[in-house]
């Protein structure tokens, strides 16, 4: 079975975003700590490791897009995380902002407190916006949630008698 590159990248990105989301929101403040049972160490671990994976996957996607630009490949990749319009562009910008502010927070001991605070503020609010946009994305694409009708897989077991089942029976 052929699995497309952009498809794989999309779902890897989704998994990494989920990990980053749960661990990051658990670290936001004392009110949020219950999300990971106040286990700040684990949250920190998970957040840093998946941040590295996030940066890596962003880098690979940007390389792929640059490669496509050089090859003059204008085809619209429906599954890709970055693109030149719509939600893909939004993801691109948000990922860049999150990575840059996250890198600033990472070396916060070298910076002034004001810079680290600014980066932390931007990081937090952008992640709220990104979370809301994920729900919006799920709303737009929620036809993926519909369970496949198994009409051709098991012809003997036509439970319920849906439209497809009757069609196969006739």
């Amino acid at each position: 079975m052929k699995v497309r590159f952009d498809f794989v990248i999309h779902w890897l990105y989704a998994i990494i975003w989920a990990l980053l989301g749960i661990s990051g929101f658990a670290m936001v403040g004392a009110k949020y700590g219950w999300l990971l049972n106040f286990n700040y160490g684990t949250a920190d671990y998970v957040h840093r490791l998946s941040a590295a994976a996030f940066v890596l996957i962003t880098f690979i996607s940007i390389c792929y897009e640059v490669y496509r630009a050089i090859k003059r490949d204008d085809k619209h990749l429906a599954w890709f995380i970055f693109g030149r319009s719509g939600y893909q562009l939004f993801t691109f910008i948000v990922s860049l902002i999150l990575i840059i502010t996250g890198a600033l927070i990472w070396i916060c001991t070298e910076l002034e407190m004001t810079v680290a605070g600014f980066a932390l503020l931007v990081h937090e609010y952008i992640s709220y916006i990104a979370l809301a946009s994920i729900i919006w994305h799920i709303y737009m694409k929620c036809h993926a949630l519909i369970w496949p009708k198994k009409a051709e897989a098991k012809p003997n077991k036509t439970q319920g008698g849906g439209k497809d089942a009757t069609k196969t029976m006739v």
């Binding site: 403040g29 070298e110 002034e112 004001t114 810079v115 605070g117 503020l121 937090e124």
Partner: peptide
């Protein structure tokens, strides 16, 4: 004091009087 997120806390403690100059100078 802890009745806020880390970002809000940082905002009230450090960022409220930030200048653009602070972003450019980074003497540690």
């Amino acid at each position: 004091m802890m009745d806020s997120s880390m970002g809000n806390m940082m905002k009230s403690m450090h960022v409220s009087n930030i200048k653009i100059y602070d972003l450019l100078s980074s003497k540690g």
